[in-house]
């Protein structure tokens, strides 16, 4: 029998995060914890989230398990609870039962064979920077009504995010001493679709920091921790757009 107890806040953050790219997702459970990996239908953005068993208040599984869910339904159930509550979740046959204090509610599981888990691309880049989520979001928001793409440039001196259309442009420049960390030997640049970045950044809490790595015309990787204790590990991948 699978039975879990987790803080509502953590589960809500997870649901919001993966809901930025998909509507349905498959959660995999094993001894180490839970893993969910999703890709949007156009295969532009991917999210990989790992929730170790320590992030749960209670974590009981008999064997490896897969649970496919409609995220909208999950989010609706979580709306019934306060942020400081814990939710007790139990799987019975084709249903998932949630107990939230005085309220209990169950939702139907999706057929595991319908929801596929994507393969993870082979991506590695040497250069990276660590930036606060707040700073990063400000640069994206500046570009929001300018264009649908944003260009990142990283040099040993600074990180810039630039966007331009025929009539308008926006630019954010952060010198290296305002970045939390930086590793870069030459100058690299790449263009990314803005829409995915904005949705992603909005879904994670403002206190977190983000580690961005990329190279010339290459997918962007963002590593981050989330959840109250920072125990949950996330990875966001985004395909580049060519000019």
């Amino acid at each position: 029998m699978t039975a879990l107890n987790i803080s509502v806040k953590n589960l809500r953050e997870l649901a919001d995060l993966i809901n930025t790219v998909v509507g349905e997702a498959k959660f995999k459970f094993d001894k180490a914890g839970m893993l969910v990996r999703v890709v949007d239908p156009a295969h532009v953005a991917m999210i990989n989230a790992e929730v170790p068993r320590e992030a749960f208040v209670e974590y009981q599984i008999d064997s490896d398990e897969e649970i496919a869910l409609d995220l909208e339904k999950l989010k609706n159930v979580l709306k019934l609870a306060g942020s400081n509550d814990n939710v007790f979740v139990r799987k019975t046959n084709d249903k998932l039962k949630f107990e939230l204090g005085t309220v209990s509610k169950s939702i139907t599981l999706l057929d595991n064979s319908i929801v596929t888990v994507p393969k993870i691309p082979q991506i590695s880049s040497e250069s990276f920077l660590v930036i606060s989520r707040g700073d990063f979001e400000r640069g994206l928001k500046a570009a929001e009504d300018v264009s649908d793409a944003i260009k990142f440039t990283l040099s040993p001196e600074e990180f810039t995010a630039r966007s331009a259309s025929d009539s308008e442009d926006s630019e954010m420049t952060i010198p290296k001493d305002m970045l939390k960390e930086i590793k870069c030997s030459g100058t690299i640049k790449s263009l990314y679709p803005l829409e995915y970045l904005l949705k992603f950044v909005k879904s994670i809490p403002s206190s977190e920091t983000l580690k961005l790595s990329f190279k010339d015309d290459y997918p962007l990787t963002i590593e981050f921790n989330f959840g109250g204790s920072g125990l949950m590990k996330g990875l966001f991948l985004l395909a580049p757009r060519t000019e």
Binding site: A42, K119, P193, L237, A239, P240, T242, E243
Partner: peptide, 13 residues
């Protein structure tokens, strides 16, 4: 342009 280059698929082994 998006369709031409905008997918992660080609990085999957």
């Amino acid at each position: 342009r998006y369709l031409k280059a905008g997918s992660l698929d080609r990085y999957i082994a």
